[in-house]
């Protein structure tokens, strides 16, 4: 554990809580891609199956349970409780175009051809692109609520902090995981355009809206 890893995890946690609270308090999931949230629920489920097979630490176990629990709670709020507010027409990204290639890649490029390991690899690859339906939705509607941009910023920042964590671990522990590093780089790059808009617009008090 180092400072980048810890702040990365906390940033991830903050993102998840911000989204849950936003939906809960406003009683609405307008502007939120349910498809991205389903993908994140799949990501956590396939990655954290190791809860059943290996214990790493109390921190590790509790964070995993919180992440996976919150992911399902978010999906429940969007598709069941506040379904009437879900903007399905604008959430039109075709997720099979992500899941199928990512599944194929996980079978082809992994650390070990074992079921749990392939599912872990699948989750790493899928996480790197899971935000695309949300970004697609924003580009389609041309705007995002400010609280939604805070969510996206925390979510993007988390993987960027993990990149520093991996540099740290390589330097001080000789540890590296090429699959996680490459996927983490891809994931972070996908947020760059959004980061730019967040800094130049949202942090200056303006709403995030894209030119028509």
């Amino acid at each position: 554990m180092n400072v980048f890893r810890l702040t990365g995890d906390l940033s991830h946690l903050a993102a998840i809580i911000i989204l849950l609270l936003k939906i809960w308090k406003s009683r609405s999931c307008a502007g939120i891609s349910g498809k991205s949230q389903i993908l994140f629920a799949i990501v956590f489920t396939t990655r954290y199956l190791d809860l059943l097979t290996s214990f790493i630490s109390l921190y590790n176990t509790s964070m995993k349970l919180i992440y996976v629990g919150c992911a399902y709670a978010t999906v429940y709020l969007i598709y069941v409780k506040f379904r009437a507010t879900y903007d399905g027409n604008h959430d039109s990204f075709r997720v099979e175009f992500l899941i199928v290639p990512v599944g194929g890649l996980a079978v082809l490029i992994n650390h070990s051809f074992a079921p749990l390991e392939i599912l872990w690899t699948f989750s790493i690859y899928l996480e790197s692109v899971a935000i695309l339906p949300q970004l697609f939705m924003i580009s389609k509607t041309g705007e995002a609520e400010t609280i939604t941009t805070h969510y996206l910023f925390c979510l993007g920042l988390y993987r960027a902090l993990y990149l520093f964590n991996w540099v740290w671990r390589f330097y001080f522990e000789g540890f590296f995981d090429m699959i996680a590093i490459v996927a983490g780089l891809v994931q972070t790059v996908l947020y760059c355009d959004f980061f730019y808009l967040y800094v130049t617009k949202v942090l200056k008090g303006k709403k995030l809206s894209l030119p028509a």
Partner: peptide
Amino acid sequence: ADEAGPHDEL
């Protein structure tokens, strides 16, 4: 090390 799990990161 670049090898299969257990994975200690989230």
